[in-house]
């Protein structure tokens, strides 16, 4: 017989004027290899069909199911109950707009982020795909992929002290996106153009170095190193600009 797990789940339906934010208690018997995906799905199907949460791939690849699990943002689908205490509290991610219970609106937030960071390759090159492709060093390709691995779950944003205080802070996910394009030889944006996007307190200079992003990222993206790299790069970019503009023409 498995443990009888005590769940405390945040409930709130913004579409229902009568709904007020509250914690609701559920109990569920643990079974072997149970993950939070299995547990929450069972709670919905067996106990409370009104429970709102998001799952998609249930394999830690898509980033849908990020929530605050016993205080820490993480992916519910890869949280194994056997590694958890008998009392589990679940909250929606902060910072993002709440849709209902444990579900938050990461979709709109991230689409806005693509627009802000202009999250695409900027190039003037006209490519004819019927001809041989431009060559690239495999090591560079792997380096880009390393940063491209972000699944946009929102954990880094929810865990970020700055993002919690300043909703317009771009956060590690957006800064990592910029770093991804900076190291991509196909992107022709200049240092100045990148600076215009992230060279402010809403960008890299808003980062206070609390490293919660680094510590909660379910994909273990090298966020700490990217943030340090960007701060140095943008810091020196500013100095270069000042030096250049203050020099007589």
């Amino acid at each position: 017989m498995g443990r009888n797990i005590h769940f405390e789940i945040f409930r709130y339906n913004p579409q229902d004027t009568a709904s007020i934010p509250r914690m609701q208690t559920y109990f569920l018997e643990e079974t072997i290899n149970m993950t939070l995906f299995i547990a929450l799905t069972r709670l919905r199907e067996e106990q409370d069909p009104s429970l709102v949460f998001d799952f998609c791939c249930r394999a830690g690849i898509c980033g849908s199911c990020a929530m605050v699990i016993n205080g820490r943002p993480g992916l519910a689908c890869q949280t194994q109950i056997k590694n958890m205490p008998g009392h589990i509290s679940l909250h929606p991610l902060p910072v993002f707009k709440i849709i209902g219970d444990l579900s938050v609106d990461t979709g709109v937030w991230f689409r806005e982020m693509y627009r802000k960071t202009e999250s695409w390759i900027h190039t003037r090159a006209e490519v004819d795909p019927t001809l041989e492709e431009a060559r690239m060093d495999n090591a560079v390709a792997e380096e880009i992929y390393e940063l491209e691995r972000c699944i946009e779950c929102g954990c880094c944003i929810a865990a970020c002290g700055t993002a919690n205080l300043r909703p317009d802070f771009m956060g590690a996910a957006a800064l990592n996106r910029i770093a991804r394009f900076m190291i991509d030889p196909r992107d022709e944006r200049s240092e100045r153009e990148y600076f215009d996007i992230i060279g402010t307190d809403f960008g890299i200079f808003g980062c206070m170095g609390l490293l919660a992003c680094e510590d909660v990222c379910p994909k273990q993206l090298p966020l700490q190193d990217q943030l340090g790299f960007l701060r140095r790069k943008m810091g020196f970019a500013a100095l270069r600009q000042i030096f250049k503009t203050s020099r007589p023409a």
Binding site: P94, V95, F96, V108, D168, T200
Partner: peptide, 13 residues
Amino acid sequence: MAGTATMLYAHPQ
């Protein structure tokens, strides 16, 4: 809960 981010920094500074 905070709303979605605005475009403050995109204004000419």
